[in-house]
Design a protein around this nucleic acid. Structure first.
Length: 466
RNA sequence: GGGGACGUAGCUCAAUUGGUUAGAGUCCCGGCCUGUCGCGCCGGUUGUUGCGGGUUCGAGUCCCGUCGUCCUCGCCA
C-alpha cells in the first residue's frame, strides 16, 4: 500500500506513529515558513503541518487546492488550545517530513464548497468535482448502505436476487419506451423496461416463489424536479401469500433498512388508510404524514351557505373541500392571496378563505357564514381565533383533490411541519383498479396493469370497471 | 407541446425612470506573515453584459428574433 492510514482515522492513540497519507488538499493556510494543510479523502480530513524545519530547506512545494498530495510524517498531539473539535481528527496533526504532489490541479471551474449554490449544469459538466463533495459522498454511501440492507434482509427471507433482460419488448404500460435499434433486425427495436415486473409471472410459474431485484427502470417522459428518465426500484415478488404476509414482510424490511442505515427505530405496524381517505384528507395517494393538516369535505353544507361558487360546484357534480390552518390568521391578506396560484395551477378557479378573529370570522368568505350551516362549518373545522381556513370548490372533484393536496403540501412546508430526516410510513389500501381517463372517459389503470382486482370486485370487472 | 422566470468576471450576485470609466464577495496572481483551521494583512487582473438585429444623442437596462438553463402544466407511478 502506498499509504499507511486514511485521512479520517488518526486519533490520539496514533501519536508518535510514522504515517503516510494520500489525499486531496482541502485548504492551505500559509503562515510563511509554516503551512497548515487540510488533507481530505473519502474517510475524513486531517491537518498536516508543513514547515521548513520539519521538511528541510527548500523542499516546500507550491500547494494548491485539490492537488493530490502524498505526505509522510509523524502524528503529534496538538498543543492545548489548538485542537479543532469540528474535526474527528482534531486532537492530532501530522508533522510532515516529506511531501510529494501526485496529481496537479488547475483552478477549478467552481468551488466545491459552495455546493448546491452552483448551477446544476456546471455541476454535472464537472461531475467528478461535484462528487468530491462530502454531501454527495454521504448520499452515495446512503444508497449503498440501503441497497445492502435490503438485500441482506430479503436474503434472510429466502428471496433470490434475480436479473432480468434490459433489452426487451414494449409493455402495455403508459409511459413512452426508450428504444434501442437492433443490428440483427434492421428497422426493429428493443424497448428498455419501464419496470421489470413484466417478467414476474414467468418466474412465478417456473417455481421461483420469492425473488427480488434492485433494478433500473426507464421511462422516456419529460423531466421534473423529482423525476429522472432512469431510476432504481426495489422489485419484490412473492407467491403463495396474502395481503397480510406482504405487509408484514415489507414493514420488517423497512424497519431493518432504517435501523441499519440511520440507527433509528420505526414503530410497527404502520398506520393504514384507504385510498379514499388519503385522497380526501391529504389530497394525495402518497400522503406526507409528517404534517397533521387535514382536508375536510363541506359539499353537504353548501345548501345553507348561499355562496354561489360553492353551491354551483356541488350542483355540477363537484365538491367543496377546506382545511384549517392553525395560526394562519396572523398572515396578511397579501400573504394569504399569494397561495392562490398554487390551486390555480391545479385547475381551480380560485382560493376561498376566511380567518377567525376574536370578533368572529373575517375575510372574503365570512359573510356567507352567518347561518346555521356556517356555524356548523366553523365548528367542524375546529376554528379558533388566529386560525385561517382555505377552501376550493370545483365542478370536478379531481381538481378539488389536487388543489387542496398541493396546498396542504406547500402549507406544511411553510409551517415547518416537514422535518427532513423524519420518516412517517403508512399504508394506503384499497387502491382502485381503474381511473376514468380524462379525455376518453374510458377506464385506465390507476396503479399499473399487473395488479389483481380485489376479490369482492371481480364480478364488476366486465360490467362496471369504474 | 403550452405557460412563466432567468442569462452580467472562472463561481455567486449587484448596477436608480435608459445616462458618463459595468461593481462586490469569492477564486486567481504577486508580496508579507511560525499556531492557523472560513487564517490574516497589502497590492493586482478579471468582462464579446448568451448570440443577432432594431429603437435612441446614448442600451446591461426597452422592442423583435434566436440559443440555452430552470420552474411549472401536459405527460409520467
Amino acid at each position: 500500500m502506498l499509504r499507511t492510514h486514511t485521512c479520517g482515522e488518526l486519533r490520539i492513540d496514533h501519536v508518535d506513529h510514522e504515517v503516510t497519507l494520500i489525499g486531496w488538499i482541502n485548504a492551505v493556510r500559509d503562515h510563511g515558513g509554516l503551512k497548515f494543510v487540510d488533507l481530505r479523502d473519502r474517510y475524513g480530513r486531517i491537518q498536516v503541518q508543513i514547515s521548513q524545519e520539519s521538511i528541510g530547506g527548500d523542499a516546500l512545494e507550491t500547494l494548491r487546492f485539490d492537488q493530490v498530495l502524498k505526505v509522510t510524517g509523524s502524528v503529534m498531539e496538538r498543543p492545548d488550545g489548538m485542537r479543532n473539535p469540528k474535526l474527528e481528527t482534531g486532537d492530532v496533526e501530522v508533522i510532515a517530513s516529506s511531501t510529494e504532489i501526485l496529481g496537479e490541479c488547475p483552478p477549478l471551474p467552481f468551488n466545491p464548497d459552495s455546493g448546491d449554490q452552483v448551477n446544476d449544469e456546471l455541476r454535472f459538466r464537472y461531475r467528478f468535482i461535484d462528487m468530491r463533495r462530502e454531501e454527495i459522498q454521504r448520499r452515495f454511501r446512503l444508497r449503498s448502505d440501503m441497497q445492502f440492507a435490503m438485500r441482506q434482509y430479503l436474503h434472510g427471507h429466502d428471496f433470490l436476487d434475480l436479473e432480468t433482460p434490459m433489452l426487451t419488448k414494449s409493455t402495455p404500460e403508459g409511459a413512452r419506451d426508450f428504444l434501442v435499434p437492433s443490428r440483427q433486425n434492421p428497422g426493429e427495436f428493443y424497448a428498455l423496461p419501464q419496470s421489470p415486473q413484466i417478467f414476474k409471472q414467468i418466474f412465478m410459474i417456473s417455481g421461483f416463489d420469492r425473488y427480488m431485484q434492485v433494478v433500473r427502470c426507464f421511462r422516456d417522459e419529460d423531466l421534473r424536479a423529482d423525476r429522472q428518465p432512469e431510476f432504481t426500484q426495489l422489485d419484490l415478488e412473492m407467491a403463495c401469500i396474502d395481503e397480510s404476509d406482504i405487509m408484514g414482510l415489507v414493514e420488517g424490511l423497512m424497519e431493518h433498512v432504517v435501523k441499519e442505515v440511520t440507527g433509528k427505530e420505526v414503530t410497527l405496524p404502520f398506520p393504514r388508510l384507504s385510498y379514499k381517505e388519503a385522497m380526501l384528507a391529504y389530497g394525495s395517494d402518497s400522503p406526507d404524514m409528517r404534517s397533521d393538516l387535514r382536508i375536510q369535505e363541506f359539499s353537504d353544507l353548501v345548501e345553507g351557505l348561499e355562496f354561489k361558487v360553492f353551491s354551483g360546484a356541488v350542483e355540477s357534480g363537484g365538491a367543496v373541500r377546506g382545511m384549517r390552518i392553525p395560526g394562519g390568521g396572523q398572515w396578511s391578506r397579501k400573504e394569504i392571496e399569494s397561495l392562490e396560484p398554487i390551486v390555480k395551477q391545479q385547475g381551480a378557479g380560485g382560493l376561498a378563505w376566511f380567518k377567525m378573529t376574536d370578533d368572529g370570522p373575517a375575510g372574503p368568505v365570512s359573510r356567507f357564514l352567518a347561518g346555521a350551516a356556517g356555524e356548523e362549518l366553523i365548528q367542524r373545522l375546529g376554528m379558533e381565533p388566529g386560525d385561517l381556513a382555505c377552501f376550493v370548490a370545483d365542478k370536478q372533484t379531481r381538481v378539488v383533490v389536487n388543489s387542496m393536496g398541493q396546498l396542504r403540501k406547500e402549507l406544511a412546508i411553510k409551517l415547518g411541519h416537514i422535518e427532513p430526516g423524519v420518516l412517517n410510513f403508512c399504508w394506503v389500501e384499497e387502491f382502485p383498479l381503474f381511473d376514468e381517463d380524462e379525455e376518453t372517459g374510458q377506464p385506465t389503470p390507476c396503479h399499473h396493469p399487473f395488479t389483481c382486482p380485489h376479490p369482492d370486485d371481480l364480478s364488476n370487472l366486465e360490467s362496471k370497471p369504474l
